[in-house]
Structure formats: C-alpha cells, structure tokens
Design a protein around this nucleic acid. Structure first.
Lengths: 372, 372
DNA sequence: TGCTTCCATGTAAACGATTACATGGGCACT
DNA sequence: AGTGCCCATGTAATCGTTTACATGGAAGCA
C-alpha cells in the first residue's frame, strides 16, 4: 500500500518541501483513515482508545493543525465572531472588547473587529462580510442593524446568523440585548443631585438619534419629576460623548450669567472636558458647579476633582454578550435580555450647592436599584 | 443543456431553499463558465467587455458574494491579519488599532485581534493560529515573537508569514519595525526639564524587561548627561505604565523628606496617577513638583493641570505598520524600519522649579529632532 | 447455531472557489 | 492565401476537510 500514493505525489519527507501537514499524513502515520483522524478530533468517544492514541501520537509527531479554510468550507462554520462598533479609539469600548475577547477565546472563537466610523460604506461592506459567511455570529455595539443600507437587488441573503446587541439596544430587532438600565441610572443620578439640594440641574446629552441618549434623557426627566423639579429645555446642552463636546458645553455654561448649580454629563469624557473648561474659566468644581459623569472610565477616579459618575460593568457586559452569542451558536437556550447592574460612584466632583461645606469625600459606591 | 444539471440538483429557484448563491449560479445566468466569472472578479481586464458586463449584471441580480472559505482553501490566502497586543483595554492601543484597521480595510483585509494578557497559554494558541494559516500576516505590538513557547515536537511549521513589529521593536527578529525614537524622545524631555532649571529629576519606569522601558531609560540617562546632571538611582521609581503605578510612585514621593523638583513618567497614565496623588497629599503641581508624561493620550490635554508630555502619532503608527504589512503581503518592497517623529507637547504640569512665576502656559508643540 | 444489533472503521462524495491547460477563432504579417 | 500568435473562454483538477453511507466483525439473544 505504498506505491507512491494514489495521486502520484512523490514521497519527499525531508524538510525541503514546506507543504503543510495534512490530515492524510496523520492518517497514514497512525495507520487509519482520514475519517478516523477527523473523528478522533471532533468526537473522540466514537473512536477506539487504541486508534485514538495512535492518532494523537501522530498529530503530536507531525505537528498537524487542521486547515481552517477546508474545515470551514465543508462544515459551514468559521469559528469567528464579528464585533461591530462605532469607534474603536473610544476608551469606553476597549474594556468591553476585552471582556468579549476573553469569553470568545475560552470557547474557541476568534474575534474580528470592525470599526465603522460613521461611514455607511463600511457598513455595507460588513453586511457583505456577514453575508459571505465569514463569521458565525456578530455582536453589535453600534445600535442598529445593517438593514438600512440594503445590498444589491433585495436578495435577502443568508443573514440568518445569530446576532447580539450590546449596550445600545436595537429596538426593532428581535435579538438578545445586553445592556444596563440607562434610564434608571440617569434618573438615579439626577435624583442624587437633587437630593443634595440642587434645584437647577443641567444635562449634557449624547447624539440626538442615539438610543442610549434617548434612554438617559428620559431618565433625566424621570429624575427631575421624582424630585419635583421642573424640566427646563434651556438646561439641555447638546453633546456627543466626546471630550470636545464637554469643552463646548463648558464654554457655553461659563459664558452664561446665571448658571445651573449642577451638570449631569452623559459620558465621563464630556464631564472631564467640561470640568476642565469650567476650571479654566475660574469657576470652582464642585464649589460653584457640581459635575457628574456616566460610565466610570479609568480616568474618572483620577480626574481632578475625582468624578462622581455611574459605574458600568464594562468587562462583564462584554463577557455577557459573548456568552449569550456562544449559547446561540451552539444551539443552547439563552436569555433574550440581560441587564447588568450599575453603581452610583460618589467622588469629589459633586457636592451640595453653594456655600455648604465641602467634606473631603471618599469614593463611595451605592448599588443601583434593580429595575423592576 | 438543461437536463436538471449534471450533479442532479433539482431546479428549485424559489426562496424556500436558503442555499447561498454560488459562482455556478452566476455563471449560468451570465451564460459563461465559472472560470470567466472568477476572472471577471479577479482580473477584469482579461475578460471581454461584453462577458464582463453580463457577469456583473448576474452578480448584482443574484447578490453573489464569493465564499471566502472556498477561496482561501484554493488560493491559500485568507485576507486576514492578526494583531497581537498585550492589553486590549489599555487606552494607548485603541487609537493605534484604529489606524491599523483603517489601512487594512482600505486594502481589503480583515483584522483579527488577540489580546494575550500575559498568559503564555494564549500565546501558544495564537502561534498555532498563525501556523494553521488562518491569517496572511501579523502585526505584533507585544515586543516578542512566539518563539519562546515552542509548540509540540519542535516542528518548525510554516511560520513563514510576513510579520511587522509595532512600537515595541523585536531586537532578535529580522522583521520590519515601526516605532518612534523612544530614546531620543526621553532624552529630549529630560533635557527640557533640565533646561527649565530642574537639577533633581526623578524617573518613573515601565516594566523592567520591556524594550520601550530600556530605550526610554537610556534616553533619560542621555538627557541627564547632556545637561551635566548626575544620575541618581534613588530617583528611579519602578512602574508599569498603569495609573496605579503612578499612584504608588506618588505616595513614595509624597512620603519623602526631600523630593525631586521634577518627575518624568514614562506613560501618561502614570503621570496622571502621580499628579493626583501629589495633589491629594497637599503638594502643588507644577508649583512644588513638575510632572511630565509620555504618549499624549486623549486625557493628557484635559488633565488638571494639563500634562506636558511626548506626543506619539498613534494613528499614524498603526497606519504605517499596516501599510508595510500590506506591501509585504503583496510582494512589494517595503522599508525595514520606520521611525515616526514625536512632538514635545508643552502644557501646564511642568514649570521652572520653586518660586519662579507660573505663566498661564498655552499648549505648545515642538517638533522632535530627527534621529540621526 | 443463526439472526439481529451495534460499534469501529473505511470509502468517497461533497463544500465552492481558483487556475493550469486546452481550444478555437480572429487578426496581422508575409 | 497561408502561417503564426494572441486573446477570450471553457474544462476539469485541485485545495483539505467533514460526513453520509457501506462494511465487516463481535457480541447478544433465542
């Protein structure tokens, strides 16, 4: 059975040919068929212990690694997951990504990242990516499906891969959502500010169309209402979660003759930019104006003054999303929605208004109320 | 020629079967062979305009997307690039990643990210990843090859894919390096501090074994020497680029009876943590101690006081690395080493020592000297 | 002992592209 | 008009797995 092989491949087993080891090589060495090798890897319990041992020995000896392209061509599985996010360079996402990567790695999946910086062109590209079957599933952090930018001739393609929405819920889509209770958290922060005595609480928003923004804005209004404060549109400043937006909002406030005594920024970046600008304008924080953030990014704790904010369990969010997706991929049942708890983190950038004494506050955390 | 197909596949063209469109479907519709379709996509100029038009029309009509697994199985190309980095959640990397992603995207490559958080286990896994041919090339931000943790039985595998080292040069490896002049930049910052009159300049290091650290430490010593200052080991504080390390260094300094008048931190994170700690301890920055950073991360500009630091063109670094890798992948010649310029960014955290007047400094940038 | 069942294994047909090689027609040149 | 060349295209082998189906032997049961 060694007549130089049925396909006529000459026997050259020295190092000269750098051809990758194939399953056939392993099979020959272990004196079994390729099918048995394949089974030894996929379903070891269906192979006799002796054959299995020989196969593994041969694999170790040859350093065989299955060719993923061939495997994926045949099995229609890529063991890859696409993560779509609006801005890779944003601090907020990096820790989430890490959580995702951890979990995917454990389950043997690779992570492909797509940063679609607003460009619909890229969006279409990644829709095609999914359609081409390059990934088994996707985690969407961008708040919408690819639906809008429909491809070509309305062909529905095989978009039937599992999807999970992370952070930004996708209302229209019937896919699992992993998120925090944005509305509740925003309400809670607003009420916290009110409880300290603030009567005039400004709000620096996210991008208008953003779902997070809409939730948080509702929460802000809820909080005002709960505290018996009126809603004043003049206290709503536009933003987009960036430091620059915070700076702009700060300039806006600094230029005013009468100012709110507290500002609730819907991102830590904006809060930091805003504080910075207020300080430069000669105002004191929290002496003259209290400032609260959202997210609890790394720098919130070391900002000057340290930022009072809402803590989001970013890593856990990423892990949860990955877990749900993996469940879906492997046909296990999975929850349709997961809401992780947030914490209200009390630091130094918020204090009672005006001339009340500023205690040297230490960081305190208060577990958020579970949403009902 | 329509006797239900040579493979006996029944003709069912309604939406019920969600079978993906194959090249054969396109070929049939365009009335050409699969080879022509393939060529129309890969080398349009080798197909007659008429056939080409029919092919593209058919592609549009069917919504055909080539199956990457099949393509990659045959052509041994994956159009994927692996990016290996030590810590995905680190701010410093995110903008670099974005630069990489941009360029890769333009060239039609996907990006797979691997965050090996120190675990050699993961490292081995990704070595196998490369060996399996899942990617065409890799960009390494982690400062070493996978060589150390050798796989299995010493099989050399096909590790012959193009690699590029980014930021952290890999001395032993003969692969292109994209970096900044760390030594020169550190020297420059040290001299800047000295030129303001500081005679006692502390240094907060990175991880000892880190190549960046070694370069920067040499630069620090260069700078001292150039300024005619003695090197004092007691002024070298251990760090690891994290905020916490900065805090620790700050506590160390705050506890001392005699302190340096300036501190050069080799990362902005450490500088921010350190400043924060000094301020809490009642010291003034830069009044009592000047603090300089390295990297110019987003928050450096809005720290309080705004951080004097070394600006690294992070996005450009990422783009450059991706460009070089793409050149390599496509067989084009490419430079063996690229050094991008850094800027010395002068802000408010550094001032002349002691009682000299603190001008309301504005941000100023000075282009670094080109390395010779 | 003869029949059924099951388990371990082998054989070979997909999976869906790319591409070497063959082919035939048109054009240019002598 | 004959020869040669090139261009557009088709045919079919190939990439390396997985897996449906076939097979043969051992074991269990009556």
């Amino acid at each position: 059975m060694d007549e130089s092989g049925p396909s006529g491949r000459p026997e050259q087993d020295d190092a000269s040919s750098h051809r990758a080891v194939r399953i056939q090589d392993v099979a020959k060495l272990a004196d079994v068929s390729t099918a048995t090798v394949s089974r030894a890897l996929a379903t070891p319990e269906r192979v006799s212990p002796e054959a299995r041992a020989r196969v593994f020995e041969a694999i170790a000896k040859t350093g065989y690694v299955p060719n993923p392209a061939a495997r994926s061509l045949r099995s229609q599985k890529t063991h890859m997951v696409l993560v779509v996010l609006p801005d890779l360079s944003n601090t907020f996402f990096s820790k989430i990504l890490r959580g995702i990567e951890e979990r995917l790695f454990e389950a043997g999946y690779g992570m492909i990242i797509s940063d679609l910086d607003g460009t619909p062109e890229k969006e279409a590209h990644f829709a095609a990516f999914i359609a081409a079957g390059r990934v088994d599933g996707a985690i969407l952090l961008n708040g919408h499906l690819f639906g809008q930018t429909r491809m070509g001739g309305g062909a529905t393609d095989r978009t039937g891969i599992p999807l999970v929405a992370l952070c930004e819920a996708i209302p229209s889509a019937d896919i699992p959502q992993i998120e925090i209770d944005n509305r509740g958290a925003a309400s809670r922060m607003t009420q916290h500010l009110a409880s300290l005595g603030h009567r005039s609480i400004a709000y620096v928003s996210g991008p208008e169309s953003n779902i997070l923004e809409r939730e948080r804005f509702l929460g802000y209004q809820d909080g005002l209402k709960a505290a018996g404060l009126p809603f004043d549109p003049g206290l709503v400043l536009p933003g987009d979660y960036t430091i620059e937006a915070g700076v702009a909002a700060g300039q806006n406030l600094a230029a005013r003759s009468t100012r709110p005594s507290a500002v609730f920024c819907t991102s830590d970046e904006m809060a930091i930019g805003l504080i910075r600008t207020l300080l430069s304008a000669g105002l004191r924080v929290p002496g003259d104006i209290s400032v609260a953030g959202f997210d609890d990014i790394e720098f919130a704790a070391v900002a000057e003054p340290a930022l009072t904010t809402i803590h989001q369990p970013r890593r856990e969010l990423g892990q949860a999303a990955a877990s749900v997706l993996i469940d879906l991929l492997q046909g296990r049942p999975s929850p349709k929605r997961i809401r992780l708890d947030t914490d209200l983190v009390l630091r130094d950038s918020v204090a009672p208004p005006q001339n009340m004494l500023k205690a040297p506050a230490k960081t305190t955390r208060t577990r958020a109320m579970k949403p009902t």
